[in-house]
Amino acid sequence: MLRYTIHRILLMIPTLLGVAVLVFVLLRLMPGDIVELRFLAEGGQVSPEVIAAERTRLGLDKPMWRQFGDWMTGIFVGDFGISMWTGRPVVDEIASRLELSMQVALMATVFAIVLAIPLGTLSALYKDSWIDQVIRLFAIAGLAVPSFWLGMVIILVLLLNFNWIPPLTYTPIYEDPWTNLSQLIWPAIAVGYRYSAVATRMMRSTILDVLQEDYIRTARAKGVFERLVVARHAMRNAMLPVVTVIGLEFAFLIGGLVVTEQVFNLNGIGKLFVETVTRADYTMVQALVMLVATFFILVNFVVDLLYAALDPRIRYR
């Protein structure tokens, strides 16, 4: 297990390096840069000298290999750079948004798990009954409805019925839990619904598969109560793919709530992503991509480790 863990950790290095090269090159393939955007997007009469000086200040006049080298050296010593747009450290820019994104992702995950596991199980146990049909309809609707659209509907319903919309600015949960939840519960529901639909479908199909297994028949033949058969033997074994889906979805939510964050005006990582890509803020985009990639890799790693905990037959060497 230890050897496997070290092997996986070492594999992360070339993966992240590949991501770094890819994002670095792709960003610079597009014509234009942050300096032209900043000074000319609103019609400023800026002299070519000012533009050239700004490019020099930001290091954009250096050869690409040198810019990449500077970036990698910085990362190696824990310096992720300065945002080209705001001039503030990228770590500060990300940190101020990460808390909100993490909370929405966690709330959506809890919401999804609480719904998906019982609903998926019920749907499988009562296959083809009206219960199954209703749950499947609920899940298919969740897959079909984009989260941001559901978010817009939620806002409209709140506005038209209660003349109220969720707060526009973020209050940490430790400062004012009520205000915090009144802002974040809605995006968590909007995102969690789709998330739960994916997990419900997965839970249903894996339970159905597992219920056909020999050990389930054996348990039933031994006279184990049906409830125990489902809870101890079926659900536990069915959880493996569901955990994978939950893990991947959670990692996606950290940087993937691009449109939902815009709809609810949430100052999170997704909104920051859009803004920095639009502004061609290379250092910020690079840092964000690396953050999300690292997160994905770590979540996958944790999910793999969880497999062993869930299924004693799995042993990593």
């Binding site: 506005l159 526009l168 803004e275």
Partner: peptide, 19 residues
């Protein structure tokens, strides 16, 4: 001053009296 990038979110905020 509240930074609201999305046009529909801005209009909604105005309609709700949040701004």
């Amino acid at each position: 001053a509240i930074f609201i990038r999305d046009t529909s979110a801005r209009v909604t905020a105005l309609q709700a009296g949040e701004v």
